[in-house]
Design a protein around this nucleic acid. Structure first.
Ligand SMILES: [Mg+2]
Length: 501
DNA sequence: TCGGTCACG
DNA sequence: ACGTACGTGACCGAT
């Protein structure tokens, strides 16, 4: 078929459980070319069969029937051609063991939805409204006139022309940048910038979450049903939309108040199971770097261990500041960051940042070797792969423009790690979903946030479920490092306690 | 529809 | 001399 997930949702609602699914042309299109922006059936028919799907004429019953039959016939022929190509690029496992079975799991998760406390969000919205009005007056007073704070254009004129604040950076189009980084720089000297930052934080929370989520509660289920998009992210990750439930705030205290609105069903609890440092563990696995492998074998705090290596200090010499620097360097490696990028991030000279990176590679030579081999592979073949063979094409790896080319190089380094992590959690979801059904749990998987699964579970199932989730998530891949999974339980998604086991 | 901004992993 | 870390989605203002 093509885009089976809605059909799977209908069948689940009707209580019909097919044994399995053979083929989905949309998912095959994604596995063959994950960089496309979309996979309309007429495009697939044109590109893989060299044929034209008849133009959609669904006027009247006969038109609809004719077009639907043409679609069905096209899917059957697409399966022949596309499955050959998928096999030829060694992606059969990715399509048939990951994407096709995952589709039905996602359908179940979307149908299950997640409960939110609507009354609480309405209260929160009112509080945010009051705080915003106060913050707004503060800004107007400091500016000497009212204006639209939400307009970066007006804000730039007020700050950099009327008040003559020093211009930090310009945007790509040459306008004054007023982003958080610029305002943070100025905030110590100019209180209006602090006020604007606070206004922005509250405004974001209100307009994107507090005011929107209540409207998306489905009238018949009383829950929010996101869409998990399976063919959007070029790396193999899922995305979530309408609403996006993969970017619910957590980092700031005010943000966590939004997250508190996500609750368990009555009598239930929320269980969250997330992979600990999965991308760095994968880096250890694929690079084979001895010290990185050992650090994870010993279940060390990886950022602290990196700090000890980088700065040559004993464990008790790792200050929070050194750990923070080491953490930034670890991220820098995962993202293929340059010494220039690292210098900006750590507020040091390019030379110092360069020395940091050199020292990192001297201590972890396997990592340097892996990164260089990955880049060489990308240049030779024009693509990179995950541990399971998922491919991402990077044609811009040979681009004449250096910025464009270097962006492709960073993607070449990051995609195998981000993509393998995506493969692993997808496999875990398929396994966990099967176990939940086979073993008669009433718990439902409700959310996936890249390295985290959230389940809504009867309180009495929690102890067994915690073990099951751990087992499925850590056992799905046998690597040279353990895949550590942290489990937390709570009545809402913000206030969770570690589950021991 | 685009640019700027900001929420998440 | 140059240089915006990887991957997403949503909101607002301006056009
Ligand atoms: Mg984690």
């Amino acid at each position: 078929g093509y885009y089976l997930k809605p059909l799977q949702a209908s069948l689940i609602r009707a209580g019909i459980q097919p044994k399995g699914w053979a083929f989905d042309a949309m998912l095959a299109g994604y596995v063959l070319q994950s960089g496309r922006s979309s996979y309309p059936l007429p495009d697939l028919v044109q590109d893989y069969l060299g044929e034209r799907l008849p133009t959609e004429d669904t006027t009247g019953e006969s038109g609809l029937a004719a077009y639907t039959c043409a679609e069905a016939a096209a899917c059957l022929r697409l399966e022949q051609v596309m499955s050959q190509q998928v096999a030829a690029m060694s992606c059969a496992d990715v399509l048939y063991r990951i994407e096709v079975p995952l589709s039905e799991v996602l359908a179940r998760m979307e149908l299950a939805g997640v409960a939110v406390d609507v009354a609480y969000l309405h209260q929160l919205s009112d509080v945010l409204e009051a705080l915003l009005r106060a913050k707004e007056s503060e800004v107007y007073t400091l500016a000497g006139e009212p204006f639209n704070i939400a307009s970066p254009k007006q804000l730039g004129q007020i700050l950099f022309e009327k008040l003559k604040l020093p211009v930090g950076k310009k945007t790509r189009t040459g306008a004054y940048s007023t982003d958080a980084e610029v305002l943070e720089q100025l905030a110590a000297e100019y209180p209006i910038c602090r006020s604007i930052l606070e206004y922005r934080e509250l405004s974001k929370l209100k307009s994107t979450y507090a005011d929107v989520l209540p409207r998306l509660v489905h009238p018949s289920t009383g829950r929010i049903h996101t869409s998990f998009n399976q063919t959007v992210a070029a790396t193999g990750r899922l995305s979530s939309s309408e609403p996006n439930l993969q970017n619910i705030p957590i980092r700031s205290e005010a943000g966590r108040q939004i997250r508190r609105a996500f609750v368990a069903a009555p009598g239930n609890r929320l269980l969250s199971a997330d992979y600990s440092q999965i991308e760095l563990r994968l880096l250890a696995h694929v690079s084979g770097d001895e010290r990185l492998l050992q650090a994870f074998a010993d279940d060390r705090d990886i950022h602290a261990a990196t700090a000890m290596l980088l700065f040559g200090v004993p464990e008790e010499g790792v200050t929070p500041e050194l750990r923070r620097k080491a953490k930034t360097v670890n991220f820098a490696v995962l993202y293929g960051m340059s010494d220039y990028g690292l210098s900006l991030e750590l507020g040091m000279s390019v030379g110092e940042a360069h020395a940091f990176i050199e020292n990192y590679f001297r201590q972890l030579p396997g990592v340097r070797r892996y990164l260089e081999e990955t880049l060489a592979f990308a240049r030779q073949h024009g693509y990179v792969t995950t541990l399971y063979g998922r491919r991402r094409y990077l044609p811009e790896i040979h681009h004449a423009n250096r910025n464009v080319r270097q962006a492709a190089e960073r993607a070449a380094i990051n995609s195998p790690l981000q993509g393998t992590a995506a493969d692993i959690i997808k496999l875990a979801m398929i396994d966990l979903d099967r176990r939940l059904r086979q073993e008669g749990y009433r718990a439902r998987m409700v959310l996936q946030v890249h390295d985290e699964l959230v389940l809504d579970a009867p309180a009495e199932e929690v102890p067994a479920l915690a073990e099951l989730a751990r087992e499925c998530m850590s056992g799905v891949a046998r690597l040279r490092v353990p895949l550590k999974v942290d489990v937390e339980v709570g009545d809402n998604w913000a206030e969770m306690e570690k589950f021991m086991g």
